[in-house]
Structure formats: C-alpha cells, structure tokens
Simulated assay, not measured.
Amino acid sequence: MKFKSLKKVLLASLTLTLLLGVGATASAGYKLSDEVTTATPALLAATEIGLKTNENPALAALPNKDAILVMSFGTTFTDTRAKTIDATVNAIKANHPGVKVVTAFTSHIIIDRIKAKEGITYPTPEEALAQLKAEGYSRVAMASLDIIPGIEYDYKNAVYQTHKNNFKKATFSTPLMYWQGQEGQADDITATMEALSTQFPKLGKNDAVLVMAHGTPHPANAYYAVMQDRLEEMGHDNVLIFSVEGWPHLETVIPKLKAKGIKNVTLMPLMMVAGDHANNDMAGDEPDSFKSILEKEGFKVSAYVHGLGENPAVQKLFVDKAEQAWDALQAK
C-alpha cells in the first residue's frame, strides 16, 4: 500500500510538472521550464515565487546606478531598534562600501511617532523608491526583515510589483523563513531554528522555553507548525512555540507543559525587535501578560527580552537574504 501511495504522489507530481513546466533551480527561486514558450501573464505571475527579478527593456539604455532598500515594520523602542534593525542594516552596509543603503518602515504609526519623539524621518518603501528614482538610481535590490511570508511580506511584495518597472532592474529577496527544504531548495526553517537555539538556556527535564511568535490570520501562520517540527527533529523537545495573535495560543501549550512536568519556563520572542509585544504582552507585570498567566498556573517564569535581530546568527541569515537580492541585481 505504501508503494502504491508513493507511486500516486510521484505521478501527480509528474503531471503537474508537465502541465506547468515548473522546475527547481537555485535555492533563490523557481523558474519555468525552457520548454514553456507561450506562458501567459497569469502563469508567469503564479510561478514567480522565491527571489524575484524584473528588468524593464524600456530603460535598458540607462547607466547602472545601484542601491539597496531594506524594509522593516519598524519599532518605536529606540534601544532595540539600534540593536536589531540598525545593526542588521549596518551589517548589510559593511558588505557594500560606497553603495547607497536605505532603510524604510512600513508602519505609518511608527514613522509618525519616531518623527515626533526623535525628530528622525523614516520613509515608507514607496517614498524610498520614489526618492531613489529621483536621485537617478536605475537599479535597486530590495530586502525584507520579515520573519515569515505573511501579510507584512505580501505588502512589501506588492510594493515591489507596483514599482519594479520604474527601474532598469529590480530584485526582491525572501523573508527570514521562506523555503522549507523542498527539492532543490534551502531549508530556511531549520537554519533559523538552529540560529535561534544559540540563545536557548541549558534545560533540565523540568525546564522549558516558550518562544512567542506574533501570529497572523494569513495562511503563513502554518509556518509555526513547521518550526515546531524542526525543533523536535533537532531534539529540542522542551521548546514550544505559541503566538500572540495566531495559533497556537498560550492556552494551547500550557497543558503540554503540565503533561511534561515542566516547572520552570523561559519566555523569549520570535520577533525581529523586542518591542511592545515582548516587553508588555510577554514579560509585563500586568495580570493578563503571558508571564503573569504562567505564574498563576504555577510555573516559575523568566523572560529573555531580546529581539531576533540581536542574535548574531539570525542577523547573518538576514544579511545573506539581502545578499541574494544584491547578487541577482548584479547577475547578467
């Protein structure tokens, strides 16, 4: 029976490949088979996954003038912004001396609050691209500091799709976790969980780490289940993921903690920055904070209030993603 089931899967996969002509290439993305010569715009759009590249033939005569745009949701927490977003952007800059690197935030509320409080003006991605074009930049590599390909990443992709033909060439990288080890692709999930594990404390049999993700109504919320699977494959049986606004909830994992006989819990955020969610929802002293809820359930709780961007191993993964966009920009 197992052989017959596998045969059906292989046949279905082969049928799909023949119909779409889709084949895996480098870990950066996919492309249509060379045998597909009459692909419709809809088919091209549907198979444009992974790292994206666009060239506008109408602007081919323009001289190359390259820039990098790094996009983030942003944060009003000055200290964590310096340690996470700024530190990552500076690492990207260090790899490209003499290249213009611009940071843009997608949250208009955060942009307004930073301007009012600190006198610093961050552009939106749309404003940043318009300014780059006005300054004569003809090619731009766009990078995202998103964790998963959810709503925020979709917004940045929409910005890329809307503005890509304003430039001679434009590229757009994938978020921290995108590929899941499909044939011919990298396993971003395992790489990220390995990087995350460098900040885990030493755990005894009665100890656990709860990793707090943001959560989303977007189907990309399913990534959390894949992360949990990878953690278990790596032997981190007492590390559990829960989310603020998605699934699994804290209430989902508390029974699991009790079933394992866990007494001591370390909370840590699975977020680029340690902002409001990490400081208040997770580690705050209010009765409805996750720390307080766990304490009421009888657990001894400590909090690791540091954004992923502070983790050197995670930061390197973000820099590598930006490098993929840059390499695609330079490719002939």
Rank of each mutant, 00 (worst) to 15 (best):
T266F: 07
V226K: 15
M282N: 04
V319L: 04
E194T: 13
V253Q: 01
G215M: 01
A158V: 06
L196Y: 06
T103P: 03
T106M: 12
I120R: 13
L176P: 09
Q131K: 15
A91Y: 06
A45D: 13
G50T: 13
V99S: 04
K202E: 13
D66H: 08
V159G: 10
V265L: 09
A303Q: 01
R139C: 00
T252G: 03
T266A: 05
G298L: 07
H306Q: 13
A91L: 00
Y224I: 03
Q330L: 14
K263S: 15
I92F: 07
L6F: 15
G21E: 02
E286M: 05
V314T: 14
A195P: 01
A58P: 07
K52A: 10
S13T: 15
K31D: 03
Q131M: 08
K291A: 07
L231T: 00
M227F: 10
T198A: 03
G136E: 07
H214V: 00
T266M: 10
K168S: 05
G136L: 04
D327T: 14
L14G: 05
V211L: 15
P149S: 14
L267G: 05
A259C: 01
T84C: 10
F73V: 12
A58C: 02
T37M: 05
T78M: 12
K93Y: 03
A222T: 05
K115F: 11
L132G: 08
Q315W: 03
E118F: 02
F3H: 13
K2C: 08
F73Q: 11
V314N: 13
T84V: 04
A208F: 04
N166P: 08
G119H: 04
N56F: 02
A87H: 09
L51D: 07
K133G: 11
T40F: 12
E251G: 09
K31H: 12
L210R: 05
T40V: 07
D112N: 15
L19H: 04
A87K: 13
A208D: 05
V101G: 09
L6A: 15
Q161S: 12
L231M: 08
A158K: 13
A128D: 02
K321P: 11
D79S: 14
I151C: 01
R113A: 13
L10P: 03
T192P: 09
T40Y: 11
D207R: 01
I151E: 15
D281E: 06
E233S: 06
K316S: 11
I110Q: 10
E297P: 08
L43E: 06
E35G: 10
H306N: 12
A278G: 08
K164H: 08
G98S: 08
H277D: 06
S197Q: 04
L20Q: 02
